[in-house]
Lab assay of single mutants.
Amino acid sequence: MGKSNSKLKPEVVEELTRKTYFTEKEVQQWYKGFIKDCPSGQLDAAGFQKIYKQFFPFGDPTKFATFVFNVFDENKDGRIEFSEFIQALSVTSRGTLDEKLRWAFKLYDLDNDGYITRNEMLDIVDAIYQMVGNTVELPEEENTPEKRVDRIFAMMDKNADGKLTLQEFQEGSKADPSIVQALSLYDGLV
């Protein structure tokens, strides 16, 4: 993909415009910024974590950033290329609610087996709590990752089998306004 070129080839721009919710001009602008920050044309896990640390200076986002990195890194080569970056950004910032929920499901399904187990969710929720640090005051019933996961599973795990399917996750998330709101945070920002 033209590693350190400051412009993408027209056919690449066209393809990314088809695969995302961005215009050709927006794709070019994002590429310019991506190459400025990642001259090699790729972003590794350490660089990704560094970006998260800028956004969450009062907590430790390392663990959460690693989980997000793994979802962005579609081809699992340990690096995020621009096409992976822009497609994930498109879903998280401008995707439909169902697209965002499928993306979030992939984030929580750490072993990619098609289910979110209690332990997988606990890993992610714990990482989120570490990331936000003491900057967020949580209600008593959610002031630990374990309590939050218990509440989520009580609401979403309809067949009580200890794991969530994509359908259970989507339906449960849509029924909880706070989850829908959290997924909409990026709307309109890009």
Rank of each mutant, 00 (worst) to 15 (best):
K3G: 15
K3P: 07
S4L: 01
S4H: 05
S4C: 15
S6C: 04
S6W: 14
K7Y: 03
L8G: 03
V13A: 10
V13F: 05
E14D: 07
L16V: 15
R18Q: 12
R18F: 12
T20R: 00
E26Q: 13
Q28L: 13
Q28R: 07
Q29R: 07
Q29K: 15
Y31T: 04
F34M: 12
I35L: 03
K36V: 08
K36A: 13
D37S: 12
P39F: 10
P39A: 12
S40I: 13
A45S: 09
G47A: 01
G47T: 00
Q49P: 08
K50G: 03
K50C: 07
K53W: 09
Q54M: 07
Q54D: 09
F55C: 05
F56A: 00
P57W: 04
P61D: 01
T62G: 05
K63M: 07
T66E: 02
F72V: 05
K76A: 13
G78F: 15
I80C: 12
S83H: 12
E84D: 07
F85D: 04
I86L: 10
I86M: 01
I86W: 00
S90E: 09
V91M: 05
G95T: 03
L97N: 07
D98G: 09
E99L: 15
E99K: 07
K100W: 11
K100Y: 08
W103A: 09
F105A: 00
K106H: 12
Y108C: 05
Y108T: 10
Y108R: 03
D109S: 05
N112K: 10
N112M: 01
N112A: 10
G114E: 07
G114K: 13
Y115N: 10
Y115D: 05
I116D: 13
I116G: 03
T117S: 06
N119L: 01
D123N: 10
I124S: 09
D126E: 07
A127I: 04
I128A: 13
I128L: 11
Y129N: 05
Q130V: 13
M131R: 04
N134E: 15
N134H: 04
E137Y: 03
L138M: 00
T144P: 14
K147Y: 01
K147C: 11
K147M: 04
R148M: 00
R148P: 00
R148C: 05
R151K: 10
R151M: 06
I152Q: 12
F153A: 07
A154G: 05
A154S: 07
M156A: 06
M156L: 13
D157E: 08
A160K: 01
D161E: 11
L166M: 01
Q167C: 00
E171T: 01
S173L: 15
K174W: 13
K174Y: 00
A175I: 07
D176V: 09
Q181T: 09
A182T: 10
L185W: 10
D187E: 10
G188E: 15
G188F: 07
L189M: 10
V190L: 11
